[in-house]
Amino acid sequence: MEVLLYALLGFMVVGCIIAVEIKDLLSAVVSVGIVGICLSVVFLFLGAPDIAIVQVVVETLCLIILLRATVQRDDTTIYKYIESFAVATILIFSGVFMVLAYRAFKDLPSFGHPLMTVSQEYLREGLAKTKAVNFVTSVLLDFRAYDTLGEATVLFVSILGAIAVLRRRGRR
């Protein structure tokens, strides 16, 4: 179980590296799709079936959008420019970030033992208060409904922005 989870996570990291480093843009987009589907399987392992379903649907749409941007281009291969200053900066930053993250993770509750001070309340009283057996839905649409409203607003604003950028005729 744990070994399989680690194997999937390692596979995802390798897929990310391939997606970033490969020269052909179409292959890069396909490997991002594989990483997304793999992420959905990881969510299933972690006891989150709702998120796994959402992730599969969103990943498919995301892949279609990215393919639309890639397929019709004439030059799908990249001409390599290595800017050594940017690469050196990001590598140094990555090292510093990893060390700081390692120190911060030691103070977090260890993997597999969550704190759950707020969620215990939800789990105990959610059924009586909201009559929903799926607690993700009861948090999403009842306890934290204002959060969901705000996030739906963000989603629609981003879609409006995409439409405004993509429309053929604008008002002068």
Binding site: A48, F135, D147, E151, I159, A162
Partner: peptide
Amino acid sequence: SVDPLPQALTVTSIVIGLGVIALLVAL
């Protein structure tokens, strides 16, 4: 049970990610 609170917040985060990707690809 596993913690339902981060799951509920992640569902909307995933969908917002799709919106961001769509906007970037449009640009």
